[in-house]
């Protein structure tokens, strides 16, 4: 038997997740609702401090995306574990890292969608245009790194008894460089700083993304071992 190519396995897993989510809408609705509620809380708590709003916007976005992303990734992997389908995927003769990249692709897509929805919501409620190409690029880089580490650590956390609390405890400290770099880069964009003053942050994000993806590629086989 010839083995399925890496890319075909990644596409098969990602397509399966997208198709299932398109029908159930469980993840995206939970993540989206959570993100919009958090945005509204930020809005009402800052209503009396208009001078602080602008300074808080990037952090508001990334705190919201981080928690919504953790919720979505945790749920997705927990469902695979509870239904035994993770075993079904692991039984197949494909590299386990291909399973990781398939799950990662969808986790990244959903987290990026949430980031863009929150950006739109923040733009509306704070009357500031945030939907700019550089802002979206930062969101793409930041959510990629977050989804990369979230999917890796989430695959470990599903085996824990208290996985709902284990995942954030594992992910948030490791994701701190991503959140910090993304917030700083977003400040640069929001304050219309010269490009060269904040370009270091997207470069840092891209570097962290590469490191996390490489780590996951190397470690995912061991993460799934029982």
């Amino acid at each position: 038997m010839r083995r399925t190519s890496f890319s075909r396995a990644v596409i098969a897993v990602a397509r399966k997740d997208l198709r299932a989510e398109f029908r159930s809408r469980l993840l995206i609705s939970a993540m989206g609702l959570f993100a919009l509620l958090t945005t509204m809380i930020f809005y009402y708590t800052l209503e009396s401090r208009p001078e602080a709003r602008r300074a808080v916007l990037p952090a508001a976005l990334w705190v919201t995306v981080t928690f919504a992303g953790t919720l979505g990734i945790g749920r997705s992997l927990a469902a695979e574990h509870d239904r035994g389908t993770l075993d079904g995927l692991m039984l197949s003769p494909v590299p386990r890292s291909a399973l990781y990249f398939g799950k990662l692709a969808v986790a990244w897509l959903f987290t990026l969608i949430v980031a863009l929805v929150v950006t739109l919501a923040l733009s509306i409620v704070f009357n500031t245009n945030l939907l700019r190409l550089d802002w979206v690029l930062i969101a793409a880089l930041g959510t990629l790194g977050f989804a990369a580490i979230g999917t890796l650590l989430g695959s470990m956390a599903v085996y824990a008894r208290s996985r709902e609390t284990t995942l954030p405890i594992l992910v948030l400290p490791v994701a701190l460089p991503i959140i910090t770099a993304a917030v700083n880069a977003a400040h640069g964009v929001l304050d219309n700083q010269p490009f060269e003053e904040w370009i270091a942050y997207p470069l840092l994000l891209a570097s962290v993304d590469v490191v996390f993806l490489a780590l996951a590629y190397l470690l995912f086989d061991f993460v799934l071992e029982e």
Binding site: V13, R83, S92
Partner: peptide, 18 residues
């Protein structure tokens, strides 16, 4: 997978087994 049809479930595994 609950949200896939019987055929889609088999097709997924068929793809993973080349």
């Amino acid at each position: 997978y609950d949200d896939l049809s019987a055929m889609e479930n088999l097709r997924l595994y068929a793809e993973l087994y080349n």
